[in-house]
Design a protein around this nucleic acid. Structure first.
Lengths: 206, 206
DNA sequence: ATACTAAATGGAGACCTCTCCGTTTGTCAA
DNA sequence: TTGACAAACGGAGAGGTCTCCATTTAGTAT
């Protein structure tokens, strides 16, 4: 899982290709930093990196994939944090764990806001495959489902953990999250509270 | 509210302009019907209608606005239905009313799937103003908030009706709704059940 | 070294969205 | 009628996304 496209490949990546990949990543990073992810076009990246558009699109089918590659490391660290937390706190009640995970994610989202939005936007623009198969989404969904299941273990409701997990992630998508912040005026902390009181603490009053 | 851009305007719409508006609407409707909303470009509409791109964009800033104009009438009917239902059933418990409204909306969404998606997509692509100010969204939100408030009237939770309403609408956005259908494999009825059991029947087991 | 081959490259080009602006055309007042 | 003028028009063009493919080139087997 650690080296996926870095070191040895199925038949090794050509040296020039590897060099170009790094060149693209560096250029994109620099331009994103300077102008903001939103403002930078694939064109611009190609031009700045002095490669043809074809070369760029060959490696990344769209800006989203590029963004994805750029946060890959952060995402890995993020999941490491979660795993560590879960291992050290497996006796904690599941709803508390859930809330903590959401808190982790919100912090992550705040830190990587632009790139995350970049990932999501392209996903929807392009293959219409929704924001489904982003590894981040899928893996996080899996974790949430397990916690929801653990929560409902001693309840009578028929399980809808997968749905709840989708709701949570939906609510924390760029679209929804920034709508809550910018239009509704909530702080990250308030969003966390609203979300947990709405979707996590389902039994009893609150 | 009834005549907004139809009959008398602030200073009447020029006859040629009115004619063109209708021409655009007809052309778009025809092309959408024939090829699907997704597949038809603004360009194509302009060409087919034999008008310059500038003329088209002058009237509709993007495809979303065009779609919006195309479903305006259906939307009005939709709200009429809701209003009628609410007036005839104001003694029914609010959670039941809520569920019924959602059912209305899901049916509407199924019927106007393509145009609705068209509206939402452009909204997010363009002014980044999120899917907020679509009249449909805003008005529906308002109705949901009132019902949630009514529901919580005799409970102790501090009100988060606005948030819940946002969650519901988020869950029924094209993005989320079709994800649930296509990827998770739920039927419209199942989505309705999941949604109500998750967000509406908050008190007690189910 | 040499030839072979699959990967990598770059740029032309198809098609798109959206803006700008010089020109045309209803409309209304004189 | 006849101006005058704001509204409407159309199309050129800037800038994007993404594809295709003829050409180049890095590894590898001989």
């Amino acid at each position: 899982m650690i080296n996926d496209q870095n070191t040895p490949r199925i038949r090794t990546e050509r040296r020039d290709a590897a060099k170009n990949r790094q060149l693209i990543l560096d250029t994109a990073h620099r331009l994103f930093e300077q102008f903001g992810v939103e403002q930078v076009s694939m064109n611009q990246i190609a031009t700045e990196a002095q490669i043809g558009p074809g070369t760029l699109y060959r490696r990344y089918r769209n800006k989203g994939e590029l963004c994805q590659d750029l946060i890959k490391d952060s995402v890995d660290l993020f999941f490491d944090d979660i795993e560590e937390y879960l291992q050290e706190n497996d006796q904690v009640p599941p709803n508390q764990k859930l809330k903590e995970i959401l808190s982790f994610f919100i912090r992550f989202r705040e830190k990587k806001a632009q790139l995350l939005t970049g990932v999501e936007e392209a996903k929807s623009t392009n293959p219409l495959k929704s924001r489904s198969k982003s590894p981040l989404y899928a893996e996080l969904h899996q974790i949430l489902v397990e916690l929801f299941d653990e929560m409902e273990a001693n309840e009578n409701t028929y399980s809808n953990s997968a749905f709840k997990a989708d709701m949570v992630l939906m609510a924390l998508s760029s679209d929804s999250y920034f709508f809550q912040k910018d239009v509704r005026g909530y702080s990250p902390e308030e969003i966390l509270e609203l979300l947990s009181s709405t979707l996590i603490y389902t039994k009893k009053g609150f």
